[in-house]
């Protein structure tokens, strides 16, 4: 890890993701968030952000894209690793 890179605690990132989704129209469908740091096989790290929803069928393509861009925008302020957002099927 380079000394000048911002790295947040994964549990703090998960809390922030829950807050972002929890304040969205999709709050009732949220069923949990998992965050862990991982490595690209060749260079650098990323954050694997897995969002569990009770029913993905309720989310439109626009909803998925909006949630993803909101999370990427907020996490990027706290952590220099790329936040890779995934959606868990129930």
């Amino acid at each position: 890890m380079k000394a000048d890179l911002k790295h947040a605690n994964p549990s703090d990132v998960a809390t922030l993701v829950r807050k972002i989704v929890g304040s969205s129209p999709f709050a009732k469908a949220l069923n949990g968030v998992d965050v862990e740091a991982s490595n690209y096989d060749d260079e650098g790290e990323f954050l694997r952000i897995l969002i569990h929803f009770k029913n993905l069928d309720e989310l439109s393509e626009d909803d998925v894209d909006t949630i993803t861009s909101s999370i990427e925008g907020e996490i990027s302020k706290k952590d220099d690793r790329f936040p890779s957002v995934r959606f868990s099927e129930p």
Binding site: Y40, D41, F46, L56, L59, V64, T68, S84, R86, F87
Partner: peptide, 21 residues
Amino acid sequence: AKREDADYNLSEPLSATDARQ
């Protein structure tokens, strides 16, 4: 990031929603 999990980390869940997005 997703391609490495898709090809090498079968224990990491990836959904049809992820593929479409």
